[in-house]
Structures are given as structure tokens and as C-alpha cells.
Simulated assay, not measured.
Amino acid sequence: MPDDSRPDEGPNPEDEFRDMLRDILSGKSSIDPSQLAGAAGLPADPASINALMQQLQGALRGNGDGGISWDAALTQGQNKAAEGQVAVTPAEHAALDEAFHIAALWLDEVTDIAELTVVPRLLTRKEWVTESMPVWTQLAEPVANSISDSLTKVLTDQAPEELKGMMAGASKMMRSIGGTLFAMQLGQVVGQLASEVVSGGDVG
């Protein structure tokens, strides 16, 4: 009778890499999460570290498809912008609308600039992050992809021989993790900008 049994192919390198990352993110590794947060340019407070771990675990559960989850940037930016945010009252909205109207009348008399096609809006910091994030992600995506590709190449090239197979089999997963870290960095920066700008023209 022929032997239909197949030789043991050994552990899957991608599964090994996923297990290693899972140990890091679950606290079973010697890597300090606060050091990981610091290396990513994020605050080292417990709330930020917890958010970082949750986002990375989410990227890991996504099976490492290599894509970048910009939801992480939006969430990070909104949380950062909400710190010390002041609510806008209806009276303040009305006063601003009146000021815009008066300014538009004056400018129309003394300049040849066309009228605004969009009515100016008074935004909270968190709303500014939400409204502007699509532009930031569009600008940042080529950079994020380049950084993720470079990180994957460096890790693969410099890994010890016994880990090279593992790294090669998990490149998409590494790109996903790297993309998540970059997205959270972007959110941190945009959230900080929200506390410094006073209009859309300040961004330049």
C-alpha cells in the first residue's frame, strides 16, 4: 500500500512571526511598551500606550494585509485635539457669522477678490481634525508606504539567518504594523496642529 503521508513541512514562518508579535503586544515579551511608544514619537502615558497596543493588535488581527488603517490617525488626532478643547456656544456662533458677514461686505468694497464660495465655519479642534484628516492622509500615504517598505527591507536584510525565513514570510504583516505606527504618528501631529492653527490658511 502506498504511503500517502506527507513529510512534515515545519512551522509556518508567518505564523511564527504572528506569535512573536502577539507575545510583544500581550506583554509576554521583554520589550517595554513605553519604549515602543517613545520610538514611535507618541506620548508614554498609560492611555496612549494602551491605545497604541490596541491599534497594533488590531493590525495583527487583520492578518497583515499590508494596508494602512488611517482610522488610527483619525482616532489619535481626535483624542489629542480634544485635550483642553472648549465648547462653542450658540452666541459665539452667531457673533462669528455676523463678523464674517461684515468683513465680506467691507472686502467687497475695497478689493477685487471674488467672494468666498464656501461659507466660513467655526470649528472645534476635534472637528478641525476630522474635517482636515482626509487631506493629511492623502499627502502622507506615499511617505507611509515608502517607510513601511524600507522598514521591511531593513528588518529582512539585517535579521539573523535563522529568522530570515520568518521575516520573508511575514513582510505584509510588517508593512501593516509599520503603517499603523505611522498613522498614529500622523494623528498625533495633526491633533497638535489643531491647538495651534486659527484658520485653514495657517496650514501652509
Rank of each mutant, 00 (worst) to 15 (best):
D3A: 01
D3C: 01
D3N: 07
E9N: 07
E14I: 05
D15W: 00
E16V: 05
D19Y: 00
R22S: 15
D23R: 15
L25N: 07
L25P: 02
L25M: 10
S26H: 14
K28Y: 11
S29C: 12
D32S: 08
Q35A: 08
L36I: 03
G38H: 06
G38Q: 13
A40T: 07
G41W: 06
G41E: 05
L42P: 03
I49F: 07
N50P: 00
N50L: 15
A51W: 04
Q54R: 09
Q55P: 04
L56W: 00
L56Q: 07
Q57S: 15
A59I: 02
A59T: 01
R61E: 07
N63V: 02
W70A: 06
Q78H: 01
K80F: 07
A82M: 13
E83A: 14
V86N: 14
A87K: 14
T89W: 05
P90I: 11
P90N: 09
E92D: 12
H93D: 05
E98D: 12
E98K: 09
F100D: 10
H101L: 13
A103Q: 13
A104F: 12
A104S: 14
L105K: 15
L105T: 09
L105M: 13
W106D: 01
L107M: 12
D108F: 11
V110Y: 11
D112V: 13
I113F: 14
A114L: 13
R121F: 03
T124F: 00
W128A: 06
V129D: 04
S132M: 05
S132P: 00
P134E: 09
Q138F: 06
L139I: 09
V143N: 04
A144W: 09
N145D: 10
S146I: 05
D149E: 14
T152F: 07
K153Q: 15
K153A: 15
E162M: 04
G165L: 07
G165W: 00
G165Q: 05
A168N: 10
A170N: 09
S171D: 02
S176C: 13
I177L: 11
I177F: 03
I177A: 04
M184L: 14
L186K: 07
G187L: 06
L193Q: 12
E196H: 06
G201M: 12
G201A: 15
